[in-house]
Design a protein around this nucleic acid. Structure first.
Lengths: 129, 129
DNA sequence: CCGGATCCGTTTCGATACTG
DNA sequence: CAGTATCGAAACGGATCCGG
């Protein structure tokens, strides 16, 4: 499951707000629908992501990183740092990389914490508030 | 160049003593000769590895990580830590992972240092001494 | 509409045999 | 030893169709 597309899905889950099938499709790299579906399935079987019912509509599905998935953050972080040094990085991600550099451990902890918060926030629909 | 085989080549260069075409072929994963050749070429084009003449024989070729390649160490390290937590790791690598955990920064620095030493050691043939 | 599944032409991969 | 050549198998990707 360490292929290009899986990595991009994980990246989107971590660093963008992407969490639905449609979100991943919109990613600039342009994944095909069949590839996306198969990768999501593999990642779910590996227990790196999990499916949740979307609070708003039955037709939507939420994807979320599991603990095993969140533990991939340090790897993605190092990849970002390397890419920042040797490749060109999209502007929108520069601030994040800067923060990674400034406080690596803090960044990782913040990510893990965000995940717990989001678990609570997602459950009740915004409309229900 | 972030595919399975390229990663394994880099891993071998970093953590095993592998540095020739033949060494990589002997890796337990069993890469095919044509794939190996193509990946070595790509990695060289990306300036992650470089070719050197083998000091002993014209027929041999040494591959070595460049600075850009050595800078991948933190990524491989984090992958090892994750794999150690969630997958089963070969016994021979357990000691190394333990050392990585104990002193992450020290490990990375040691790797970088080793590289400079090896650069000096490799140049003159052992026979010439 | 959203989340997929299916079909199909094209590209890439990879095992083996072979060459310098 | 360090690679090419060949060729079947697998993966990709685009378009389209299906179910809730």
């Amino acid at each position: 499951m360490g292929d290009k597309w899986s990595l991009l899905i994980i990246r989107d889950l971590m660093f963008s707000k992407s969490c639905t099938y449609g979100d991943f499709l919109k990613s600039p790299e342009g994944i095909a629908t069949n590839i996306l579906a198969s990768r999501l399935q593999v990642l779910e079987e590996c227990k790196i992501i999990e499916k949740l019912d979307h609070p708003d509509s039955k037709a939507k599905v939420l994807y979320r990183l599991t603990r095993k998935g969140v533990d991939l953050v340090p790897i993605l972080l190092e990849i970002n740092l390397w890419a920042d040094k040797y490749l060109s990085i999209p502007d929108e991600r520069k601030a994040m990389v800067k923060e990674m550099k400034r406080d690596k451990l803090g960044f990782i902890k913040a990510m893990a914490k965000n995940w717990k918060l989001e678990a609570l926030v997602v459950a009740p629909s915004p409309k229900a508030i």
